[in-house]
Amino acid sequence: MHLLEGKGVTIHFGGLAAVSDVDFYLDKGEVVGLIGPNGAGKTTLFNLVSGALKPNPGEILFKGKKINRMPAYKICRMGIARTFQTVKIFGNMPVVDNVKIGLLFGAHGKIKKDTNAEVKNLLEFVGLDDVANTPARDLTLAHQKRIEVARALATQPEILLLDEIMAGLNPTELVEAMELVKKIQKKGVTVVMIEHVMKAIMGICDRITVLDYGKKIAEGTPQEITTNKKVIEVYLGESDA
């Protein structure tokens, strides 16, 4: 049994199929990359898995249990956490409180220890311990993305969905972010990342899934993907990189 499995996942916006008949799976400990041109349905797929949207038709199983009709907060508590493409932080709250929310509500009793100590650990883990008491809105974009990662990790997830956490980062920040993902994997958390930064995807992912126009067009190891004819077509059709 896979940790997470999607069968024929589909959703329409108006007449347009944003995600259409996509099958996917996830095994424990993997880092999976989700790539594709803009508007391919990557974020929509995250929204479907995390419960922001409901597939119709299709089903999503987490540890064998159907989750595609569950509300977002329940899916989070079961162990699937996420970050957002456009950062959604609690701007007027200090960084600690942002993380605390995840711990108090997402982890929901999974942590019996001192929550303050746990928040501190997480902030150290993502490298934000020195700005713990700053209002979140005053941080740089790179740091705000890390708040989201820390908040997601605070919910004690088994699966972490990272939506473009590397977009818009400078080279130093990018290296740090890649380190962070590896560290998360070492913790035993399974990671799915949407990313346009190919260097990052090729460097960290065990497996890559490619979406185009809401359909899965390829899946495989980074090497397989770079030599896949369909993928090259899609990407060359879009950019000259």
């Binding site: 419960g51 922001a52 907060y73 959604k88 007027n92 709250m93 995840g102």
Partner: peptide, 23 residues
């Protein structure tokens, strides 16, 4: 923690829901 949850809802409802708050 309910006060914290309420504030997080005021700040960003989606993010609160995806952090485990029964909004």
């Amino acid at each position: 923690k309910y006060g914290l949850a309420l504030r997080s809802i005021g700040e960003n409802e989606d993010a609160a829901a995806h952090s485990g708050v029964n909004v």
